[in-house]
Every structure is written in C-alpha cells, then in structure tokens.
C-alpha cells in the first residue's frame, strides 16, 4: 500500500505519525473536552456536549479574571524589572576588561536551577520565622517585627516577583550582552567625536542597538511567565486566600484538585490566547526595532 505514496510523503510519514499521536491528538482532545463537563472522577462525562458553557462560566467568574489580571500585572512588573537589571548587568560585564567569560558563566547560574528549587529556596528565605530576609532586617535593626512575607497577599506577590526576577534576569543579561558584544564599535566612536557624553552615547547609540535583543528576551520570557506555575505553586500555592493565584495555578487546581478537567481546559485555552497575544506584540516590537537598526538578520 506504501507504493502509491510519493517518496517525500513516505519519508515524512514517521514524523507525521509521531507528531499526530503526541501533539495533535492530545491538543484536539483537550480542545474537545473544554466543551464537556468532563471530570476525572467520572469518565462518562467526557461524552456530554455542553457547548460554550465552560467558557461562559469562566468568563463570568471573578476568580478567573482576578488570576488573569494578576498574571498580566506580574508579567509586566517582572519583565520590566528583569529588563532593567539584565541591561545593567550586561553593561557591567561588558565593561569588565578581563574575566568576561567567567562572569558570563556566573551570570548564568540562576538559570541552572530548577524553578522548583528556586521556589523552595525563596520560600525558606521569606519565611516569617526562620527566613533569611526577616533575620537580616531584624539584625540590621530595620524592623523588630516578623514581616509576614508569604502570608500577606501583596507581600507574597512581591516575594514571587523577587524569585522570578532572581531566576530569570540572566536571560535578559545574556541576550543583551550578546547584543553588546556583537555591536560595532565605530558608531560609538563616531558619537564620541560628535560630542556625546558617555550617557548620550548610551542613550542614542548603544540602547537602540541592543533593544532588539531585549525584545527577543521579552518574547521568550513572556511565554515563560505566562505559564509560571512551579515557583508560585511551591512558594504560596496561590494562597493566601487565592491572593497570588495565577492562571496556571488556577488551571492546575481546577483540573486536579477539583477534578474539573473540562473547565480547566477551557481556562487553558483562554490563557493560551493571552500568550499568543504577548508573543505577537513582542515580535512586532522586535521587527520594528530591527528595521530601525537596519539589521540584516
């Protein structure tokens, strides 16, 4: 029966079969299940079609919207901080006259840890009784109370941002450093002759050149954070009282704790939409910045 297929199709067939089995089918199945009241505990519910009821329910559910907005806020704050710190780090490392490689490697350390470990580490550090942070603050005499880092809703969100920023600033730093290293020196020299102070050189020449690299980092990271699960799961598990609930912790809870797989899948599809929007946004920015520097890549 294979005789009838043309060689290209024949050669691609194994890949197509594997991809269909592990990607396409689960995707379609999960999409389908988002239109059913499927519960893990009652398999038969998979066959009940309820149309858009799941979607209607989550879109009118303030818990979902709160998680959704919180995710966007976290994304915005964390990305901006990472961008700033990453840029600063990259500039510092780029200034180093020697040991650049060592510094670059050290800079990547946070990326080597599993987010779960980072979560545990920061959970310990922000612990109100035995944590490093409170300990340090108290020893320095800045406060004499135990600050409830992971118990107060806002402080907990702050602690999560710190953990995220710590673990991922290096993504920005590495990419921006790559940009700085690839940057031609002549325009920088020309700007010095043209009368620029070091700050003006940075502002008008260096920054426009490294922005595309920052946008690449942003695109990568925006997908990362939009699916932020592990750090939050470990540090606060969405608590206290859902004050740090993000989309994916909510999806996870709905799917496995509440066993409402159909509803969870519907949420997941809505949040994938969010990710796609962010990606498109940053790719637009990237394309614009690229034409701006006249890049040939």
């Amino acid at each position: 029966m294979f005789r009838k297929l043309s060689p290209p199709v024949l050669l691609l067939l194994p890949a197509l079969i594997v991809l269909t089995a592990v990607v396409l089918l689960p995707l379609l199945l999960s999409l389908y299940s988002s239109f059913t009241p499927f519960r893990l505990t009652r398999p038969a519910t998979l066959w009940i079609w309820i149309g858009f009821r799941n979607y209607e329910r989550i879109l009118s559910d303030w818990v979902f919207w709160a998680a959704f907005l919180r995710t966007i806020v976290l994304l915005t704050i964390a990305l901006n901080l990472e961008m700033l710190f990453g840029l600063g780090l990259a500039l510092l490392v780029n200034k180093a006259t020697r040991g650049k490689r060592v510094l670059r490697t050290i800079m990547m350390f946070p990326m080597m840890f599993s987010p779960v470990l980072v979560g545990f580490q920061f959970k310990f550090m922000f612990n109100d009784n035995v944590g490093l942070v409170n300990n340090a603050l108290q020893s320095l005499g800045l406060t004499d109370q135990a600050i409830p880092w992971l118990i107060d809703g806002n402080l907990a969100l702050f602690a999560i941002v710190v953990a995220e920023v710590w673990s991922s600033t290096s993504v920005f730093a590495i990419l921006i450093l790559a940009g700085l290293l690839a940057m031609p020196q002549e325009p920088v020299e020309a700007s010095k002759v043209d009368g620029c102070t070091p700050w003006q050189t940075f502002r008008y020449v260096t920054l426009p050149y490294v922005m595309p690299f920052a946008y690449i980092a942003m695109t990568i990271r925006s997908l990362d954070i939009a699916r932020a699960y592990d750090i939050v799961k470990i540090m606060t598990d969405g608590g206290p009282a859902r004050r740090t609930e993000l989309i994916w912790t909510l999806v996870g809870r709905t799917a496995y704790s509440d066993a409402q797989m159909g509803l969870a899948n519907a949420m997941a599809y809505v949040s994938i939409l969010l990710s796609i929007l962010f990606t498109i946004y940053f790719f637009r920015k990237l394309a614009a910045a690229r034409t701006q520097i006249g890049a040939e890549w």
């Binding site: 002549e186 008008y204 426009p208 050149y209 701006q292």
Partner: peptide, 30 residues
C-alpha cells in the same frame, strides 16, 4: 568631545538606526 574635531572614519561608522538626515544632524542636536 572636548577637542573640537570631526572625523570621517575609514569604515563610515554611520549610526545604523538613524536616517541620513538624522545622522548628519546628530552632532548639532547633541
């Protein structure tokens, strides 16, 4: 910047993200 000179580089050294007009006017803008 304090030497009151201007230089034409062997490799042009134009600012890649600026138009010709902006390139030429940059020093005056600064």
């Amino acid at each position: 910047r304090d030497r009151n000179i201007s230089m034409v580089f062997q490799s042009y050294a134009l600012y890649p993200h600026m138009t010709v007009r902006e390139n030429m006017g940059f020093s005056l803008k600064i």
